[in-house]
């Protein structure tokens, strides 16, 4: 086992252990904190497929995070009010149905966004993905049917067969399970033929084309998978807060997802999760000291970019091999 694998496993197991310790101490608040880490970690792992493996710096992943969130919010509201949704289909409070709906919706939107955005590269790609996310953000604000600017409350957390999702620990385990699944998907993608093509496209597009693989379709596929995983996290995030609002679509959210990845280590398996753990801890620790915690968060991030390249994983497991 390489050092990186050991440390990755330690980080993942550490999160699980932390939740169980919090449970044993009766500190449900810390379980919620761990849940938040798992969800943000999953969202950033999704983005890591596009950004870390494919080199596609999407500054608009909040769009997919929000779509997942609104899928949960809208379906749950319709189920709660017993109003039919589309074509007479009812809403639902079953998490599994919500996840599938959210992921498919995000996937379809990602195809549209990807078809246009992936024609560009570099800074253009960053700004176009940002612009698309803003488009959806403004739509969510100005469309009054689902709360508009005020957002949408989920009165009772959605259900999962055989579990009481209202218990913090059960909900954490659901989120942790999906996170583990997301990490497995990431690792499998990374080591597959597809992942090799995706990473080759990041390193040298011309060479990839020279061996007969067009980068566009590979990237589009990666972008869509990435969006679907982030949407899944969005649905969980909505259930965690029992509330969705247009702020899930905001560019701050997109920025935060990128921050998590860089903080943890770009393209590394456990990077996004490590980033999410550190970020939530910062938020919690600094927030307890000063209401101006974002100021210090900014300073810390700046220091990480300027002086600690490679993030947490770079620090613990050495520099990544990818270049």
């Amino acid at each position: 086992m390489t050092r990186e694998t050991t440390i990755s496993i330690l980080i993942i197991a550490g999160l699980l252990a932390a939740a169980f310790i919090a449970q044993a101490m009766g500190e449900t608040f810390y379980i919620t904190l761990a849940t938040r880490m798992a969800i943000l970690g999953l969202a950033a792992t999704g983005l890591n497929i596009a950004l870390g493996l494919g080199g596609l710096v999407s500054f608009g992943h909040a769009a997919f995070f929000g779509i997942g969130g609104y899928a949960a919010g809208i379906l749950a509201t319709h189920a709660f009010n017993s109003e039919p949704l589309l074509l007479g289909l009812p809403g639902t409070n079953q998490m599994i149905v919500i996840w599938i709906t959210g992921a498919i919706a995000a996937g379809l939107v990602a195809v549209l966004i990807g078809l246009i955005s992936l024609r560009t590269s570099g800074v253009y790609f960053i700004m176009i993905t940002l612009a698309f996310a803003q488009m959806i953000y403004y739509f969510a604000i100005s469309w009054p049917a689902y709360g508009g600017e005020d957002g949408l409350s989920i009165y009772v957390r959605n259900a999962f067969p055989g579990m009481n999702t209202l218990a913090p620990m059960s909900f954490f385990l659901i989120c942790f399970g999906l996170l583990a699944l997301g990490l497995i998907v990431f690792a499998m993608l990374r080591d597959s033929r597809f992942g090799a093509a995706l990473q080759a496209g990041r390193q040298n597009e011309t060479r990839l084309a020279a061996v007969g693989i067009g980068p566009f379709r590979v990237r589009l596929t990666a972008f869509v998978i990435s969006a679907m995983m982030t949407a899944l996290a969005g649905a969980l995030f909505a259930d965690l807060n029992r509330f969705v609002s247009p702020s899930m679509f905001s560019w701050h959210m997109s920025g935060e997802l990128i921050v998590l990845i860089i903080l943890g280590g770009v393209g590394r398996l456990a990077g996004p999760l490590a980033g999410a753990i550190v970020y939530v801890l910062f938020e919690f620790a600094l927030g307890g000291i000063t209401e101006h915690w974002q100021f210090f968060l900014g300073l810390i991030l700046l220091a990480v970019v300027l002086f600690a390249r490679g993030g947490v994983m770079g620090l613990l497991a050495g520099r990544a091999r990818h270049g």
Binding site: I258, V259, L302, R309
Partner: peptide, 10 residues
């Protein structure tokens, strides 16, 4: 660009 985005975001 990734580092630039993060630093200026900070």
């Amino acid at each position: 660009h990734l580092d630039q985005v993060l630093a200026t975001f900070a």
